[in-house]
Design a protein around this nucleic acid. Structure first.
Lengths: 232, 232
DNA sequence: GATCCGCATTGATCTAGATCAATGTGGCCA
DNA sequence: TGGCCACATTGATCTAGATCAATGCGGATC
């Protein structure tokens, strides 16, 4: 896709309706573009905060701790706006799960421009509150849930983001490996695999090959995710 | 403190300089106030998102999962703006650690008004990005760190927020109990206590009574927090 | 400043999930 | 279409931290 087209995808989804031509072209003048192949980490070791818009593909935001430990902080898909912090206590990078097209900006310039248009800041605020909410939910899972609850919750959440309906079931093709899932849930590959097997033998899911998943009993999965009963 | 004074504290710290009188008074007209005593949870079971400003005191944002499990999602102190989501998968509440004075707003009304002033949305965005960043750091700790790394990192972070310098050392009075620390780090009371003892016997910290802490060797604590070496 | 209660500490034991170790298999490429 | 390799699964064992169980002690109250 041409830079022109990539930028327009960003503009349509993030710039508010009826944004002035001036703002539109100022964003265009600071926009940068990159195509990342699976496994690439275009922002690795960035010394300034970046804002990236995922036009196509999927990616993981990874934080690196000491001794080579990696924590997947979030997964991102087409249409998502991701903030990638400069390295502080941990080193962050955005790593492509599938080939990705990205439009990105240095965060400080992006924010300066965004402040010219209040609808724009509001849009970015909404998206960052959504990211905060997802991160809080992940915090609860990591801090207080069993391996099975973590995986069940992960599958339910993912199906909301990338799943398709198929009768009463939900189907999806996971772009991430068992290792990525483990690094996201604070588990090892082996434990993730065992829990997949367990959910399969409970009749809650079916798998097709390595990455195809059908969620057969959404209610059962939600119950096993350790959520509070809202009816209580 | 009078409602008038409480609101002014909020206005000075959150409303942008030179905000119009109209906006100022519109915020004032939707502001609500509450004094929470230690242990109170004024937003427990709220059915709509709330935005709260902590004028004085300190609080924990708690998420409740099934089987009575609690995860402390964040600690907040005077001057902080906290977003409290309506209950979804988990039930959130803000619980006072010390007596608190709070100014709060229904999030939707707050956002509608904020959008009138671009500087205001930008301020809220900055604060929410900071909250996101703290939440991401916590995610890394919960997912990939040992008990000792979690506690060392917690102490370093807290001293940045509520510590005072005392020569080369940092001193602070923690408003939260060992249980709160455990619920924040995904550990039990006993493990937190054992790690306090361990850090004490390593000569990295000293404790005064139940809540007074001196960090004697900041460098040593940071090394034990499992951060990546930025010089690498 | 004596009393008491709830929090904190310390110790013994247990277990979920990590680690170590094969074995199986999906999907890509020649 | 067969072969190969990285990823996934499954099994055996180990361990960090949970759980269970006393004991200690800070600090609020009188």
């Amino acid at each position: 896709m041409s830079y022109q087209d990539l930028f327009e995808r960003f503009a349509v989804q993030v710039l508010p309706l009826g944004v002035s031509d001036g703002t539109h072209s100022r964003f265009k003048s600071i926009a940068r573009f990159t195509s990342a192949r699976t496994g690439d980490a275009p922002f690795k070791g960035t010394s300034t905060d970046q804002i990236a818009f995922v036009v196509s593909g999927s990616a993981k935001l990874v934080a690196q701790a000491s001794h080579g430990r990696e924590q997947v902080v979030a997964f991102h898909f087409a249409g998502d706006l991701v903030s990638i912090p400069a390295s502080t206590a941990h080193a962050y990078s955005l790593c492509a799960l599938e080939d990705c097209e990205l439009v990105y900006f240095p965060a400080d310039e992006f924010m300066r421009l965004a402040e010219q248009e209040s609808g724009m800041v509001a849009e970015v605020l909404n998206r960052s509150l959504q990211a905060l909410e997802r991160c809080r939910e992940k915090t609860v899972a990591l801090g207080r849930k069993t391996a099975q609850e973590k995986l069940a919750g992960f599958l339910v959440t993912m199906s909301d983001r990338i799943g398709t309906c198929s009768g009463p079931n939900r189907e999806m093709v996971l772009p991430m490996s068992r290792k990525d899932i483990g690094d996201s849930l604070g588990l090892t590959i082996e434990t993730v695999s065992r829990q997949f097997s367990e959910l399969r033998s409970l009749g809650l899911i079916e798998t097709q090959g390595r990455s195809g998943i059908s969620l057969l009993k959404m209610q059962g999965l939600k119950e096993r995710a350790g959520h509070v009963k809202s009816a209580a």
